[in-house]
Structures are given as structure tokens and as C-alpha cells.
Design a protein around this nucleic acid. Sequence first.
DNA 1: CTTAATGCAAAGGCTTTGCAGAGAC
DNA 2: GTCTCTGCAAAGCCTTTGCATTAAG
Lengths: 141, 141
Amino acid sequence: MTPLSYTDADIVALLGTHGIQVTSQRVLIAQLLFQGMTHLSADDVHRLANAGGQQVSKATVYNTLGLLTEKGVIRQVIADPGRVFYDPNTKPHHHFFDVDTGKLSDIDASGVEINGLPSLPTGTRLEGVDVIVRLRSTKHS
Amino acid sequence: MTPLSYTDADIVALLGTHGIQVTSQRVLIAQLLFQGMTHLSADDVHRLANAGGQQVSKATVYNTLGLLTEKGVIRQVIADPGRVFYDPNTKPHHHFFDVDTGKLSDIDASGVEINGLPSLPTGTRLEGVDVIVRLRSTKHS
DNA sequence: CTTAATGCAAAGGCTTTGCAGAGAC
DNA sequence: GTCTCTGCAAAGCCTTTGCATTAAG
């Protein structure tokens, strides 16, 4: 499905570029995210990491996801109350969120244009603009 | 600050219009939200409700906020990981969210225009479009 | 060797749930 | 009298924290 493939070396280079010390757990976690370019929750990452023979603790999963976010390697998506998703795609883009299934999907930002936003309140600077298009699955009626 | 004022009768009418049975707790909670037209977390509501002499349990606060949301009297704002805000303003509008302070503020939708969103995935219908402009407080450097 | 990362378990927020008692109609 | 709402406490996610152990440079 995903044409991109990330070798261990790619991931190691990615971490290095961002000034992140390389460990086996960090490589594994980053790989899980970039492999499928999918949106994963911390629990998803924890489950997938431990499914592959390797063993990674929950604390390390959270530490690593936090670190990767802080260093700009991945970003958080706040769409589901009570669960943060992590997104390896840091290019500007937006999201569909299916309220019924809890699934996220990307909206390419290239076609999307947002006009008329007011200027920022004084004393603040822009961190980012998130657009979440909430969906419901069409079923029963 | 807010020119609007909601009497008990207004709130009772509002609940009635939406097919919600009137109880003193529900009136109080709705009033807290509509009084200031502010964004409140469940905990805010709980604290404010109990500050005013009346006593309302946490369970009732959550039940009532859920009911008001379901009936379309208020809406949720998902911006802060780990905390849901409730917004009495159900007209289309967007939000600033200050990542540092955790404060939400409104962006009037009337000037804002979003173009180029792709069509919805098949089998889904639109629930709403949320735009969150994330801010950081400009401080130290 | 010295510093940083990991793992485990416990603790911490926020929210939901189960069920008895109180209130609404 | 019947049905619904409320309150209390316990339980449930998700996430963070503290500290001893292990790995990295």
C-alpha cells in the first residue's frame, strides 16, 4: 500500500538529523509510524512494538512519542477526546475523523484554502492550524 | 461583558424546546454555560455549580453535559488532550486554543471561508468542521 | 566511568458505570 | 405508583511520575 519504505538506516538518519540519540526502542517506534504512515495512538504503538518480538515498556512509548513530537519528527492529532494520535506526516494537512469508528484519515492541504481568519491575539504566536472534519458513518436510517 | 442575559424561564424554555426534562440541576448547569457564553470543562461546571450554594454531583454534571450535547443545546470542543470543553455557542464558529494556558476563545465564522475540502468518503455524512488555531504565548525569547 | 534511556509499578487526571435513594409526573 | 434523575463510590481509560536497572558514549 505504501510506496515509501524506510530502512533502519533511514530512521537512524532521521533521528540524528533531529538531534535525538538513537536507541533500539526509538528506532522501532519511529519505524512503526513511518512504515505505514498511519495515525497511531500510544496504545497502538505499544501493542505493535511488543507484537514484533521486541519488548518496549509503556513508559518508553510515551517518552519516545513525546520526544519525537517535541523534536518535530512527528506531530499530535487531537481529534478524539481521551486519546491522542501521532502522525508521521508533518507537512501541512488536515483530517477526517469518523466519530463512530474513531478512525482518522488525511486530507491533503494542497487544495484546501482557509481565508478570513482574524489576526492572532496580541502576545501570542501561531503554533498551527488544525482542521478536523467530523464524520458519521451512514447506517441504519 | 455579555449583553445577553438568560433568566430561569429562558433556560427552562430552552430545555423544553429540545425535549429535555427540566430539573434544578439541569437548569443550573445550562445557566452556568449560557450566562457567560464561555467554554467550560466538566470540572469547571462542577466547581461553579457547587460554589453557588447548590450541590451537584460529578455524575450529574457529566450526565447533563452529555445530554445537552446530544440534544444539540451545547457542543463539545476537542482541543486540549485530556479535557473536553463545552460550548454554549452552537452557531458555526472556530477557536483559538492557547497551548500554554489551555484557554479557548472564539473565532467568528462569518469572515472565515474554507475552500477545497475534498468530498466525504462514501458511507459517511458530515457531522461538523472544527478549526482550531493553536497559539503559544509569546514570552521569554 | 558518567550520563542518559528504559522498565516497572504506582499514582494522577478525566470520564463512565452501577445501583440505591430521591424526585418528577 | 411508575419512570426518570441524582448522588455516591468504585472502576476504567489514558497518561505521567519516581526510582532502580540497564544501556550508550
